[in-house]
């Protein structure tokens, strides 16, 4: 049963990821990413990360993706030119990606760690529940938590400044 769930999630995540980079219209890419994020949330559930999976669906697949859909619709379908900016870019880029995958796989499989082959430790009851994660966030990791909230505030202010409609440039050289 667990295998079935894992492979269903893995196929959804991989299909979504490939669709993100293969579809030409950015709007469809965003929708493919939503599929990817939902599948990934299922995998997080399999890893007993219930709270992270819920946050993934609500925050990521919900809020962040609405922002993406809005911007993709606002900007409109931008046609990407078919010519390569760097000669051979379309051939070289997948080769570099494949090399990266092989290198990461060698790093994981070649580590020879025995514990990677099985499920891992026996986890305590309530592992990954909102209670456990909240306790960690507000006790042991309070400073990173506050730093993250500050970062979010800075990003929100920065986005408002960046995207705000500027007044027309004032003509400074003209006669007063």
């Amino acid at each position: 049963m667990e295998q079935v769930a894992f492979f269903a999630g893995a196929i959804g995540a991989l299909g979504g990821a490939i669709a993100v980079i293969a579809l030409r219209n950015p709007f469809y890419s965003v929708l493919a990413l939503v599929v990817h994020l939902f599948s990934l949330a299922g995998l997080f559930l399999l890893l007993h990360a219930e709270f992270v999976a819920a946050a993934q669906v609500v925050v990521y697949a919900g809020a962040v993706m609405v922002l993406y859909v809005f911007v993709a619709a606002y900007v409109g379908g931008v046609e990407e030119p078919l010519w390569d900016a760097i000669p051979g870019q379309r051939i070289l880029a997948p080769l570099i990606g494949a090399a990266l995958f092989i290198e990461l796989s060698i790093a994981v499989l070649g580590s020879g760690l025995k514990s990677l082959g099985d499920e891992g430790e026996v986890i305590p009851a309530g592992f990954g529940s909102p209670e456990a994660v909240g306790r960690l966030l507000l006790e042991r990791f309070l400073i990173p938590f506050e730093a993250a909230s500050l970062l979010l505030l800075i990003a929100a202010v920065g986005a408002v400044v960046l995207a705000a409609r500027r007044p027309a440039p004032v003509d400074r050289g003209g006669a007063a």
Partner: peptide, 29 residues
């Protein structure tokens, strides 16, 4: 399911993302 399965899947997704950054031109994608 062994942890290796998840790690290899994660490596594959990372490689797809990196290839996408190299091959696409639209900043949104």
């Amino acid at each position: 399911m062994g942890t290796t399965w998840y790690l290899v899947l994660s490596a594959l997704l990372f490689a797809i993302g990196a290839g996408g950054v190299l091959v696409r031109r639209s900043p949104l994608v």
